[in-house]
Design a binder for these strands. Structure first.
Lengths: 213, 213
DNA sequence: TAGATTGTTAATCGATTAACAATC
DNA sequence: TAGATTGTTAATCGATTAACAATC
C-alpha cells in the first residue's frame, strides 16, 4: 500500500479546534466562510488554515471559500467521528465517574460502555446507566464487547500494569489520566495523555511570568 | 526593567515532565543524573534537555551531570511551585467535584478554596471540606479571599460571561474546561485550556490512522 | 591529570507565513 | 468578464539536533 505523507501532530492538534468553530458557525446558520474570515475568528493565519486543510484534501473552492457544512463533515471524517468508539474507564473514582457522566462525548460517537474498579462496594453500581464492574471481570467483558479506548483514571502506581494488561487484550488506544508516562511494550498502541497537574504547572509558570512584567 | 528573553511555550510545556521524572528519580534515591541518562529515560535527546534547562540557568556541572534534588527544586521554582495558588472552581457538577476531590494538586501548592454553582440545592454543601457557594456570592468571596486561579467547568454557553466577570474581579488566571475558546477583553489574563473532547478527537484520529497501516 | 559531561555555538530540520498563479 | 479566494510553491522563521570547547 502506498505510504501516505505523514501529517505532523502539530496539524492534528489543530483539527478539533477547526471542527469546533465550524460547528459553531453551522449552528449560527453560516453557509460559507473564507480562510480569511475564519482566520480572524480563530486568531490564526489564513495561510495556516489553508495549509492545514490541504493536508487532507481540497475542501474549498476558488472565489467562494469553504462550505461550512461540508468542511465540518469532512474534518469530522478526518478525525474519525463518523464511527462509534466504545470506551471503558478504569478507575471509578471521582474522575472516572465524571467522565461517565459527561454526555457531550456521545454526540461525537464516543460511548462509555463500562467502568472498572477494585472496590467491592462499587460492584454493580450504575453511573448514568453505565455499570461498574470489578477489575477481574475485565477479560470477560472484553471478550464479549468491542472496546476501542480505555481511559485510565486509577492511581499512577497501578497504571503501567493495567495498561499492559489492556494492550494484551488488544485494546488499540489508551486515554491516560494517570500521572505517569506509560511504558508499553507494544509501541503500536495509541496513547493520549491528559496530565492535569502538568496543565496546572504551565498555568502557574505563566502567572508568575505575567506578574514579573 | 530588563526584558528577559522570551521562552517558547514549547519549552514550558516540557518542564512539568522534567519535574515529574526528577521527582520519580528523587523518590528512587537517585542522587545525580546526566542529560544522557535522562534522555534515555524520557525518550528525548540529551541536547534538548540541556538546551531546555539552560533557558532558566546553568543547573548542571561539567563532568558530573545534574544533582537530582537541586534540579528538581529549581524546576519547581521556575514553574512557580514554591508558592501557594488558591483555586476556585466555577461549576460544582461532576467535573468540578472531581477536581475538588483531587488531593494531588495540594502537594504542589494548588489549593481549592471554594466551589461555585447556581443550583440552590447545592448551597452550603461540602466536598472534601470545601464549601459550595452560590454564584452570586462570588464577588463577596473574592473580596475576602485571594484567588489566583479560577477553574471553569460550567456549560460552554455561560463560560464567556463568567470568565469576564472573573477578569473584572482581578483574577489573574483561568483554567478552562468549558468547550469554547474564551473571548476575554483583558488579554493579560492567563488562560490554560483543557479540552477533553479535543483530546479524544486527537486520539480518534490516531486510532484511524493506525488501522490504515 | 584524564575522563566525563556540561553550556553554548553552529548546522539542520520542520513548521509557519508570504506570495501568487490557477480557477471558480 | 472581473473579483475573490483557493491550492501550492517559495521564503522565512523558529525549534531541534549536532558538535565541540570549556571546565569540573
Amino acid at each position: 500500500m502506498q505510504e501516505e505523507k505523514e501529517i505532523s501532530q502539530a496539524v492534528v492538534r489543530r483539527m478539533p479546534r477547526y471542527y469546533r468553530h465550524l460547528g459553531e458557525l453551522l449552528e449560527a446558520g453560516v453557509e460559507r466562510i473564507s480562510s480569511n474570515d475564519l482566520s480572524r475568528r480563530m486568531n490564526v493565519t489564513a495561510s495556516q488554515i489553508r495549509q492545514d486543510l490541504n493536508n487532507f484534501g481540497g475542501f474549498g473552492q476558488q472565489g467562494y471559500g469553504y462550505n461550512v457544512k461540508y468542511l465540518h463533515e469532512e474534518i469530522g471524517k478526518v478525525l474519525g467521528l463518523n464511527r462509534r468508539h466504545n470506551i471503558i474507564v478504569i478507575g471509578a473514582g471521582n474522575l472516572g465517574q465524571a467522565l461517565a457522566n459527561y454526555v457531550k462525548f456521545e454526540k461525537h460517537g464516543f460511548m462509555i460502555t463500562g467502568l472498572f474498579d477494585v472496590k467491592p462496594e462499587l460492584k454493580g453500581m450504575l453511573v448514568r446507566g453505565i455499570r461498574i464492574y470489578m477489575l477481574d471481570e475485565l477479560e470477560a467483558f472484553c471478550a464479549e464487547n468491542q472496546v476501542d479506548i480505555a481511559a485510565l483514571t486509577m492511581p499512577k502506581e497501578k497504571a503501567d500494569a493495567i495498561a499492559n494488561r489492556l494492550v494484551d487484550l488488544g485494546i488499540p488506544a489508551i486515554w491516560n489520566f494517570a500521572h505517569v508516562d506509560l511504558e508499553l511494550f507494544d509501541k503500536n498502541v495509541v496513547v493520549e495523555n491528559v496530565h492535569l497537574s502538568d496543565s496546572l504547572m504551565q498555568l502557574s509558570y505563566n502567572i508568575v511570568k505575567n506578574q514579573k512584567k
